[in-house]
Amino acid sequence: MSAATHVLEIDGLTLRLPRTARPVLDGVDLTVGASEIVALVGESGSGKSMTLRTALGLLPRQAAVGGSVRVAGEDVLTMTPARLRDLRAGTASMIFQDPRAAINPLRRLGDFLTESARINGGAGGERAVVRARHLLAAVGLTDRVLSQYPHELSGGMLQRIMIASALMNDPGLLLCDEPTTALDVTTQAEIVALLADLRNTFGTGMLFVTHDLGLAAAISDRVFVMYAGRIVEHGPAGSLFGAPRHPYTAALLDSTPRLEAPSERLAAIPGQPPDLRAPLSGCPFAARCAYAIERCRAERPEPENGVACHRAGELVLATVREGDRPRA
């Protein structure tokens, strides 16, 4: 795919925070094509939400960043504040995890939906309201909610409003930060179906952050697996989950409950993710990896054919589930 068709192109993104021994994000490469859904999976604290937020220039205070984050061809990290506001108001928008926390509880939902368009659009409030009505219909809500307050609606309905508000300015890129985690299971399924549907209707490219592998497999075209601020493996959803090549991806799949094998004990990954306060040499997963060899602890594996593992060529990980996996 050529660079022009990428709505998001992250290249060697590195992010450091004060009082940490290693970068929070360490050389992240990631692309999202037009009307493509890309999932970014990993444990809590792996840096996936941070990666997502850099695409809108939402950086933590005192963060030192390197590399580039291009949205529609333009580097977010070097934008002026005014240009950044334009980007946030038009080109890219974000859906958050907990809609009840993400929407101001004291303002009407109509205000929430049209606020950015009224302030940035230049178009009058009336056109913003027309657009809001159209999008409310697209996400399956009635106009009635325009005059309601957040506390009068359920979490699922609020997330629909969040999605409608993110689409108000017809963005090319939709950033989803675990948009279904705070919702109950049936509502999750509805929201996921809605997002997939909207991709077809509006042709929006999506970067979808989640720790739910089943969800990632169901919704995405391609998947990036993140560990300790690095992308350890990426590839098309089907082949990545069908035949994982990185031991971390395999371990993550093993620790996911499945309906087909309810009696099987879940294999939790032993140990903890590496601490930000300790420097990291070699492969970040080496300390928890059952296949780690001397080289893994000493030398950092560079990504090759979509996987960053020294032993990617020799390991056969697809059989791991059958139970002969050595325990650390």
């Binding site: 809108l56 939402l58 950044l84 506001r85 334009d86 980007l87 946030r88 108001a89 038009g90 928008s93 974000m94 958050f96 926390a101 993400a102 929407i103 101001n104 509880p105 606020e115 950015s116 302030i119 940035n120 508000s165």
Partner: peptide, 10 residues
């Protein structure tokens, strides 16, 4: 929601 408002270009 304040962070969200910022993320919306307000």
């Amino acid at each position: 929601h304040v962070e969200v408002a910022r993320s919306r270009g307000i």
